[in-house]
Structure formats: C-alpha cells, structure tokens
C-alpha cells in the first residue's frame, strides 16, 4: 500500500484496514469549504469525507477519528439533491404549521438521519392533540449507497488539521459497535419488523385518534360546510373536481373528474355520419378497386423483399 499517493486533487487519502479482510478501503478527506447557503457547517472544524463505508455508523466514524480529536456530530449527505431540498421545505412547513411545539416524544438516539421514518412519527404535536405511540424504533445500521459522502464536525479546529495529516499506514476500522453486524443484523431486523401486538394496537389507535382530531380541526378552520357552494367576494362560485364517492370535499360545485373526461364518453352520443358515401359513384368504386389491387401488389412486393432478405441469410437450406 506504500505506492498509494498521499493526496489526490486536494483530498487526503486515508487507507482503512479491516481486521478480518485482506482488502483495504480508501477514505478521501478534505477540509470543508462552504459554498452553498442552504446547509451550513462550521468552517475550520468540518471534515469533508468521501467514500465512507456503506455501513458506517456515527460511533464508528467518531472512534476512527478519535486520535485526531472529539467528533461533535456526523452528517451524511444524501446524494439526491432535491430530496434534501424537500426535506428542508418540509421542516419549514412544519415549523409554520405548529407554532406551539411540544418536545418530541422520545428523543432519537443518535442521529436523525438514521431513521428517516421515525421523524414523521415524532412530529411535534399540538399540546391539546392526542399523542401518538410510536412503533419501536429500529436501532440498526443503515446502508448507504456506495461511495457516499459525509461531513464530520469536530469540537475544535485543531482536530481537523490532525485528521488531515496523511497516515503512514492503513488504520484499522473500529469494529466494536452496539449495532449488530452480519447475520445477527438480519436476525435483529427480522425480529424488529415484527413488533409486539399491543404496541401495534396502541400505535394504530392513537394514530387514528390523532388523525380524527386533525381532520376535525381542519374542518373547523374551514368556513365551508358540506354541500354548500363556495362563493367568493366577487360572486364567483368555486368549481372543483369530484372527491370520494362523488362528494366534493374541498367545497364548491363538483364536475366530472379528468379521467372520466378522457374516456370521451361525455358529450353527445351520436356519431358523426361521414359526409359523403364512399361507394356511390362509379368512379369511387373504380378507385376503390384500383386501390385494393395496388395494395395487393404492394403487400406482395413487401413480402418478396422480406423473403429475399431471408434468403441472403441462407435460411432456406433445410438440412
């Protein structure tokens, strides 16, 4: 491994060794340079990592860089850009909608990113609304796509420099971990996917309660009553597509759904009669016959061309 370059287009090459495999994994590290405004990482103490192992956990990364300094947190980047954006938007919306926020029901163990699903469950709720019993969280490793990146934020700036010093030999990847690996991981996953029945029941019940509550509240907020048309200030009536079972949920006057319109069964049933009869005059008949004959000839020629082509590929030698 001594032949490995120390630097590659500004990235420090950090080889990683595993205790049970001969092969070496390569990490690429660089100090974080802030370019975009959306996500802000503290400069000077953020390490930009490329090609992290697919199953790396926070704990493992922290342990790996322990020699350089204490890691404050690790942020994994989704490679898909708009997903991250959507995430951000979502958060904003939530913040707007729920002004009075209550603390999350159960603080997530280490990182939000580990369990994207659990976030929604633990959406901050209004104080008056019934709380939702979450399904038991799964504390297992998440797999990321190969070659993904992460930002490692240290506690102080000096650690960053230390971390960027090219190592002389491959460093071992810390393997001690809370999260099971290999077969045990799958066994744990199998069990975790089958939570106890009472938890399922509690979760479903409370969730539905909450859902009903929210529904009632939105209904309250809306000025409209079912079945009434919505007329705005200028006197225009709101027209909407039909909802479930023909009801218009959002209010207004219902019209046929778009899909139904597309079937073109709307409108008059009468078919348009062709303007002219096709075989009324003698010349029309003659034309038609002529066309039929020409078609016959054309098809024959087409067949012939096809067979000739097959002949070229010597298909007609049976044996």
């Amino acid at each position: 491994m001594s032949t490995l370059p120390k630097l590659i287009s500004g990235f420090t090459v950090i080889p990683v060794a595993y205790s049970y495999a001969r092969s070496t994994h390569i990490l690429y590290a660089r100090a974080h340079l802030s370019k975009s405004q959306d996500v802000v990482y503290p400069e000077k103490r953020t390490l930009f990592l490329v090609n992290i192992p697919v199953d790396a956990t926070d704990r493992e990364i922290s342990l790996f860089f322990k020699s350089s300094g204490t890691v404050e947190r690790v942020v994994y980047n989704r490679d898909s850009r708009d997903e991250a954006e959507a995430e951000a938007e979502e958060e904003e919306e939530e913040a707007e909608a729920d002004i009075e926020t209550s603390p999350p029901l159960s603080p997530s163990p280490s990182s939000q990113d580990l369990q994207p699903r659990s976030k929604r469950k633990q959406r901050p709720t209004e104080s008056a609304s019934p709380s939702v019993v979450p399904l038991p969280p799964i504390s297992l490793r998440t797999l990321r796509n190969t070659g993904s990146i992460a930002h490692v934020i240290f506690l102080d700036t000096s650690s960053l420099e230390k971390a960027l010093v090219p190592p002389t030999k491959p460093r071992p990847w810390p393997s001690s971990s809370e999260e099971p690996q290999g077969l045990a991981h799958y066994a744990a996953l199998y069990d975790a996917q089958r939570p106890p029945l009472d938890v399922v029941k509690a979760h479903a019940d409370t969730w539905m309660e909450r859902f009903e509550f929210d529904l009632a509240k939105t209904k309250q907020k809306l000025a409209y009553r079912k079945g009434e048309a919505i007329v705005d200030d200028d006197g225009f009536t709101l027209v909407t597509r039909g909802g479930a079972y023909g009801q218009t949920l959002g209010g207004g006057v219902g019209v046929a759904s778009k899909a139904f319109e597309k079937t073109s069964r709307t409108g008059s049933k009468k078919k348009k009669e062709p303007k002219e009869k096709e075989t009324f005059y003698a010349f029309q008949k003659a034309e038609k016959q002529r066309k039929a004959l020409l078609d016959l000839k054309k098809n024959f020629e087409a067949d012939k061309a096809r067979i000739d082509k097959m002949k070229e590929s010597r298909r007609f030698k049976p044996y």
Binding site: V16, H25, P53, G182, A184
Partner: peptide
C-alpha cells in the same frame, strides 16, 4: 472491489 465491508464478510465469519 468493495469486498472489504465488514457487513457481509461477517456472514461468512460466524
């Protein structure tokens, strides 16, 4: 070849 990940080599190990 990313065969180095401990993730599945463990399947083999145990």
């Amino acid at each position: 070849c990313s065969i180095d990940s401990p993730y599945w080599t463990r399947l083999n190990d145990t």
